[in-house]
Design a protein around this nucleic acid. Structure first.
Length: 279
DNA sequence: GCCCAGGGAATCG
DNA sequence: CGATTCCATGGG
């Protein structure tokens, strides 16, 4: 990994297994927009970050090297050796095949609270609409700072109430968002405890929140807390398992980075389906 | 009108 | 336990 200062921008080169565009599109995060083929804006770490695909590498606009290093190197998980992780799946044919297509995916280390609400919203929903609801939520209750809306705090959602959430049109999920906000705001659930108590305990803790079951909890643990052994099973991954593994599939057999394998499978299964739709 | 979407709660037996 | 049903909303 090499960072080069280019006036107000940072150029990233010599960084294998990293494609920020694919990493955005692979379903782990929802606050980003594609401007064109070579340009995305990502809303993370409390700011908007413009990312351009350059001939020589990835260009991150209007950011200092210090800010990129302290905020976005951890966020993009750039210090981890993903090629070694992919190697650890080499005895699994379908994961290895999926990792060819999704080799640029990094698991983003997202804000736990934002990830919790985002995946509560994801229940029985599709990605474009999840993005729209989250964006509405930030515009409704977040704080604006030169065009960027922060993610609303638990307290602000709590004081808005279920009726106050009506404009974002989250449907039946509004009461779950509210329940999560209350339990975090009043300390009934501690995100810090979930961060430190280990995977199994953290899973139980998250599931105390209404609207959080096995799938949502595992997404939050994987994308918001860095529990890489979390293996969320949604409708797509269910299809993959039925197709390639059948009964008796055990994600723990994939080791401590099972969640990364899951993300390759999810991305691959969806991308081959959209490719088939084009034909 | 139908079905589906990164599911989960409530309610059965 | 497992199997159904319902939940709001929008796009295809």
């Amino acid at each position: 990994m090499k960072l080069t200062k280019m006036s107000n921008d940072i150029l990233l080169t010599e960084c294998s297994n990293f494609d920020p565009f694919i990493s955005c599109e692979c379903g782990q995060c929802f606050r980003f927009e594609q401007i064109n083929e070579n340009k995305y804006i990502l809303y993370a770490c409390g700011r908007a970050l413009t990312i351009c695909k350059d001939k020589s590498g990835w260009l991150f606009c209007d950011i200092t090297e210090e800010e990129f290093t302290t905020l976005f190197v951890p966020y993009f998980d750039l210090e981890r050796d993903y090629s070694q992780i992919i190697c650890s799946f080499s005895n699994d044919e379908s994961i290895s095949r999926a990792a060819v297509a999704g080799g640029g995916i990094r698991i983003f280390r997202q804000d736990p609270w934002e990830t919790l609400i985002s995946f509560i919203i994801s229940a029985n929903n599709n990605i474009p609409r999840i993005k729209k609801i989250i964006d509405s939520l930030c515009r409704l209750l977040g704080e604006e700072r030169n065009g960027f809306y922060s993610f609303p705090t638990p307290e602000s959602i709590k004081s808005a109430g279920i009726e106050g959430l009506a404009p974002i049109k989250a449907g039946f999920r509004a009461k779950y968002i509210y329940d999560a906000a209350c339990k975090i705001a009043n300390g009934e659930i501690s995100l810090e405890y979930i961060q430190n108590c280990g995977y199994a305990q953290a899973l139980d803790e998250l599931k105390k929140i209404k609207g959080v079951g096995d799938k949502v909890a595992n997404c939050v643990l994987l994308f918001g807390f860095g529990y890489y052994e979390a293996f969320p099973i949604d409708v797509w991954v269910k299809r993959v398992i039925a197709k390639y593994y059948g009964d008796g599939f055990d994600p723990t057999a994939l080791g401590k980075y099972a969640g990364i394998a899951q993300q390759y499978l999810f991305y691959y299964e969806r991308s081959i389906l959209s490719k088939e739709a084009e034909e």
